[in-house]
Design a protein around this nucleic acid. Structure first.
Length: 283
DNA sequence: TTAAATGTTTAAAT
DNA sequence: CATTTAAACATTTA
């Protein structure tokens, strides 16, 4: 699940449980999911976990890193004798494609039902050679220990929108223009800002740009507060689900009453993605 | 049975 | 060549 709050939630869990562990073995059950040489990382110790947009990077102490993108249904789950919570069933399971054996009786499992994700073993210095990272735009939001705040200025955000004639929703979901936002938070942010997702980005008024800038942060904060959205397959690093799916504003709410005016939320396709809006509130 | 699903990624069209 | 649109990826669920 893969938007900024979800991936950051995973990152924090991995940082808490994984750092300090040594990698003893790697079992690859689905070779197409992994690129790079497994041998390079066996025996190395985890020193940190970073996030770039919706991508994750586990840094090792031997100049190598393991980069992940979980796409729609990937799960990265830590287990040891003490930690075995979560509702992901027995591990490894049928969707477990990679198993990292750690020291002290711990394991890290990579599950991915749809197998869209990827894992790349690469020199830490070469991370930026991965196309996804190389072309990633600045993050919309920055997560610190106790806060979530804007990472780009209102002016930068407005400049990005003013440069595109595409629908505003398509623009804010483009990771090469702004990173971190996906379908859930784009839909909910546009709803909160009362902006029509179909409206051309460059045609938003100054006021609308500011409203969207603030609303997107608001829904990202909300999503993070609830531990992410587990509509599809998202679980945190311990295999536990988030709660934001219980608080969606517009996403997946088609047919239900608008939380503001009560008229029915409509669904249609925009840029190939399901789009949800209140036609009365979002002009 | 058909369509869509938290996302890229690549091919094709404009 | 830059920008857009469509299809592909593989499996599950509505």
């Amino acid at each position: 699940m893969p938007e900024l709050p979800e991936v950051e939630t995973i990152r924090r869990g991995l940082e808490e449980y994984l750092v300090g562990h040594k990698l003893e073995d790697v079992e690859i059950r689905k070779p197409k999911m992994v690129q790079g040489e497994t041998q390079k990382i066996i025996g190395a110790k985890v020193v940190g976990v970073r996030r770039f947009g919706k991508g994750l990077v586990i840094d090792l102490d031997n100049t190598y890193s393991i980069a992940f993108h979980i796409k729609l249904t990937g799960q990265i789950i830590y287990r040891d004798e003490k930690v075995s919570k979560g509702k992901v069933g027995d591990l490894p399971g049928t969707a477990t494609h990679v198993i990292f054996t750690l020291d002290k009786g711990a394991y890290l499992y990579y599950n991915d039902i749809r197998q869209f994700g990827w894992i790349k073993i690469i020199k830490s210095d070469d991370l930026k050679k991965i196309v996804f990272f190389k072309e990633l735009a600045p993050e919309f939001a920055a997560f610190t220990l106790d806060s979530v705040k804007h990472n780009i200025t209102l002016k930068e955000f407005g400049d990005i929108l003013s440069r595109s004639g595409q629908a505003v929703k398509v623009v804010i979901m483009n990771q090469q223009k702004i990173s971190g936002l996906g379908n859930i938070y784009a839909n909910d942010g546009l709803f909160d800002a009362k902006i029509d997702p179909k409206k051309k980005a460059k045609e938003l008024s100054e006021k609308e740009v500011e409203a969207l800038y603030n609303s997107l942060l608001k829904v990202l904060k909300l999503g993070f507060k609830y531990g992410g959205a587990s509509e599809l397959r998202f679980v945190n690093a311990l295999g536990q689900e988030g709660e934001y799916q219980k608080h969606f504003l517009a996403y997946a709410q088609q047919g239900k009453p608008c939380k503001v005016c009560g008229s029915k939320i409509k669904k249609f396709m925009l840029g190939g993605r399901g789009t949800y809006m209140c036609e009365k509130c979002q002009k």
